[in-house]
Design a protein around this nucleic acid. Structure first.
Lengths: 210, 210, 210, 210
DNA sequence: TATGAATGAGGCTTCATTCAT
DNA sequence: TATGAATGAAGCCTCATTCAT
């Protein structure tokens, strides 16, 4: 019985947290971070200002968690996209597909891009270590992208994490101005060159095993 | 005579501008942008608060100009470093040396890194178009790095600007967490892999001509 | 119980509002509107500057409400003065007495005059529609002055509201320079002519009924 | 010769003054008085900020002179309108026509109305005594309206100036909300009642002579 | 837990005025 | 006379944070 009551309370807290995340993301991406006040967030979320402080230390705390959360979501979606396409077998193709999904997500949702692009790697790295108000639903991390394949073929990479880090940095950074300002090229025209570069990086990091 | 008076006034204005740039950069990099107030800048520069508004629209205006200005400086220095080393002949090596210089500048000056890293490309692109309070001393642009070599050998690239853009984005983004947080690796250990990746990207973009 | 808490808070809020009205009126009439800062008002009222903004949008908002409030007070007092004097029976005399009371209030309280004179009609018209932070204590409006008499005699006026509007405009406008600058005449010497004019206006608007 | 030079300088000064009056009036009526800065005025007039102070003590000084100036213009125009219409002979009709002209001027030019209406009498009274930067071109004053007729018939008024003062106060005050807000009635519907009131006032002040 | 009135420091910006040229 | 760069006081307003309920 106590459990039931507890879980009811927990559910309510969870709900408040969710709405705080959603509304603050909405505000950060529409008004901009520094022009969004805690007052804004609270009133949009339908809670009192004081309540905000029961869940977050301050605005910066909230943003960091939001970046981690959204970074997770993006990677999770990309990871699922990769797995859903049965025709992809090599790791190289998996990474390209993974990257492609991220670019597509950003293209479709430029506010998401604005919010997270330059911090995507940060989001990925810190997702795991964020405090427990973030529920790491998927437990996604880059290694998993690699793992599935590792068993099925003989290709190894010097340091897959570092390689992915470089790739993600290049992709997310490049996307930013390409999608938002068409600089140096619109994303459609940039993609082929970007994918070529990714493949080139991967080849350079490959260790063939017997 | 009138010219003399004018130039005297102009010189004074130039001086004010310089000190405003220098002191604001100092403050942005020590206190952080959002915690630096215009009051801070003015009092540190030894001018009245109102004077600030004779030169800049607001803090954001100043920052944008500063990013362009510093981006210029970094590239200029890197370009000179490349040219000073007589043993570098191929374009590939020139780009590596250019990149290396940027990384070294960032390593030596982490406040510069913090301030500009994620916006280096922005700085490079916008330097030219910023209003005339910024004097584009060097007239540097990426093409120049490429030009010197173009005449001496037969190598061409699909789109050198795009290629450099991708490389700069990867390098500056990667540097950021590597130098500041040693993630995913300390910069010394990361460099070899980074350079490998750069060379790989360049090769993938190469068009051999006869 | 909840009601009690609520009413306690409400009472406090009401009290804050009252003191803000009183002190701001004091300052507007002594220092002048444009030379009174919100800082002045807040510190005189013994509240924090931010508190001001919980009650008013800005200084102009406060002034408009104050004009409406004071306009009400003046009319209310004048209306009571009229009714207290049992010997007044005709509508004509009621209007004269009403006007006389207003002039006397202004003569005794020149700061009130300065503050509201040229906006008395505005205050009267807008009192009712001002937002609910103003409590229209009396529900006074010009019609009431007229109503009491209408039943007791056969005199009607073309448009009593318009007539009163013209009269109030003439009286308040004229008072302003007469009381404050003795121009074109001191108020004592002006009054007879003013009352003659009022009676003349009323006669011109009268519709005799059988 | 010296005279010629002097007059040239005088003409230049006069020109500067004119443009300062014109532009400041434009700004006061579009942006509002308190939102118009001396900087605005100077830059709109095409003179340096410092120059403003060679002509006016401050913004308030300028406004007072402008009110007097515009009050003059309005009365002058109204006076001419009256005289141009040959069919008007009685003083009563002259006053009505004079009033009508003022109302028409305000109706056609609501910014003028906003600027001066509530201070029309002030403008009329003070026109003469304003310092010599204002050239009282016409030397108009209310007495002149009266004078022309005085000789031709036997009607006298107790105190024509006071009477006109009351009338102008009533008319200008009433116009303000009637023209700008249609309260208590649109100006077209108000006019008949207003004119009736004016005639009534005049009658009440009349002294028949033999 | 949740509320929201109150706080007051501190940011931004404007602007009248001066004064060296 | 005329200029306009420089001043710095002073205004407005926001907002994170607290705390009594």
């Amino acid at each position: 019985m106590n459990d039931k009551i507890l879980s009811k309370i927990e559910a309510k807290k969870r709900q408040k947290l969710d709405i705080l995340y959603n509304k603050s993301f909405e505000l950060f991406t529409t008004k901009g971070f520094s022009k969004t006040s805690i007052s804004d967030i609270a009133s949009n979320a339908g809670v009192a200002k004081g309540t905000f402080y029961l869940y977050f230390k301050d605005k910066y705390d909230l943003r960091a968690k939001l970046i981690a959360l959204k970074g997770q979501d993006i990677c999770e979606k990309a990871y699922n996209d990769v797995n859903e396409n049965g025709s992809i077998v090599t790791f190289e193709d998996r990474v390209i597909a993974f990257t492609d999904s991220i670019i597509n997500q950003f293209t479709k949702d430029t506010v998401l891009l604005k919010f997270i692009a330059k911090n995507l790697n940060y989001g990925i790295i810190h997702a795991a270590i964020v405090d427990d108000t973030i529920i790491n639903k998927s437990g996604f991390n880059i290694a998993r992208l690699y793992q599935k394949v590792r068993e099925t073929n003989n290709i190894k990479f010097k340091s897959p994490e570092v390689m992915m880090f470089m790739i993600v940095e290049m992709v997310s950074g490049t996307c930013y101005s390409s999608i938002l300002e068409n600089k140096p090229l619109p994303i459609d025209e940039l993609k082929p060159q970007l994918f070529d570069s990714i493949r080139a990086i991967m080849k350079s990091q490959m260790i063939e095993e017997d």
